[in-house]
Design a protein around this nucleic acid. Structure first.
Lengths: 215, 215
DNA sequence: ACCTGAACACCGTTCAAGT
DNA sequence: ACCTGAACACCGTTCAAGT
């Protein structure tokens, strides 16, 4: 007689499906995330998931998006180094809660909007602190591999397939102002960036050793 | 009448199987590496591979081992910064040749002997340059995420399952002297390490910005 | 509108059988 | 000693059918 046939459970939605998938990955690892297993966690057949998610790949993409969303963004008035530090620790806490996160990020073929939005925030923080677009771009690369446990080239169109349409839309529509500026004003050279990050680390290590000796 | 029944092809071996798997991954991506597909690349049924490899997981482990083996080790008399730089560029070249490498490393549950041996070399280079075991240990962490596109805690037994017996054997048998020394003399604290690497990067970035401004 | 059952083409793996 | 064919339990996904 009522709308809900014979079970009291609330209807599925995209969010609940993604959360269930994350729970399965947390408990049993990323490989355990199958359509059938996630369905089971929700008390539903695997095929029901297709009503809320476009398929397995979309499910994994959605999981990655939610993970990035867990990283906290500090208020804009926090001093730049402190702001980057807070973001880094929040990102690290996320990876700790979900140890399979780096494997998921590394396996996904596309860099997606939430990740780019996160990096846009980091970039804005650096630009606001007086970094040139060129240096800010390079800095983001050095930082993100440390925080998220992986490195990926964002602006290199050769590596990935066609980017997410939503991403292009956000990019050209002004929703990612800092990334847009980097695209326009920074030269993109992987080797130069790699060399910069490497020397930054090596020089920092040398300094740390010397102060250790004299200390 | 001859030993080789009716085909002129040389018999399979472990090395050829692993190479074929790497070729498949290079050409069609890591997901294309299935037992059936690798068998096909060798002109053989999938089941034949089990004579040379313990299964799919062992195949993936073997691929990872071969990748690490592609990283060149500079002669021992090269100055430490230059030596680390060469190793880093060689590692980067390897990842470039096999873009799926970070995803594979991140997906494998265990850190294996060849990887530890590589890191042992990096550690030895730092110890030889006068770094304390503590600082050398931390330095390796900062470096490897930059070079290999991923970070993994080596000495944290909680994260991984039982380590490779061959790894334990090498560790206790003196084949990895530098890693052994780190295990014995360095305190392992993930948070301290993370904070160190983060500050090293942030301080380096600040210095780069300031010299950019004054330059 | 949402869920299901049966079906299809795949996957890793076992095992008995071939040479 | 090495390779194979058939079989098993899984996987993602389609589709027609249910409510």
């Amino acid at each position: 007689m009522t709308r809900r046939p014979r079970t009291g459970r609330e209807p599925l939605n995209r969010e609940r499906v993604l959360r269930a998938a994350i729970d399965v990955a947390d408990a049993e690892g990323l490989d355990a995330v199958t359509m059938r297993r996630v369905g089971q966690a929700l008390g539903v057949e695997a095929m029901s998931l297709y009503n809320h998610v476009d398929g397995k790949d979309a499910l994994l993409d959605g999981m990655a998006d939610l993970l990035v969303g867990e990283i906290e963004t500090p208020p804009a008035d926090v001093e730049w180094k402190e702001a980057l530090r807070r973001r880094a620790w929040s990102g690290r806490a996320t990876v700790r809660r979900h140890p399979w996160a780096p494997a998921l990020f590394a396996a996904r073929p596309q860099v997606r909007l939430p990740m780019v939005a996160y990096l846009d925030g980091v970039t804005g923080c650096l630009l606001g602190a007086g970094f040139s677009p060129q240096l800010a771009h390079t800095a983001v690369h050095v930082l993100d591999s440390r925080v998220l446990g992986f490195t990926r080239d964002l602006f290199d169109p050769g590596v990935q397939g066609m980017p997410d349409p939503a991403l292009l839309e956000a990019m050209t529509g002004g929703a990612l102002p800092h990334s847009q500026r980097i695209m326009a004003e920074a030269v993109h050279d992987d080797d130069v960036e790699f060399a910069f990050g490497l020397d930054l680390i090596l020089d920092g290590l040398e300094r740390a050793r010397d102060s250790e000796r004299s200390g």
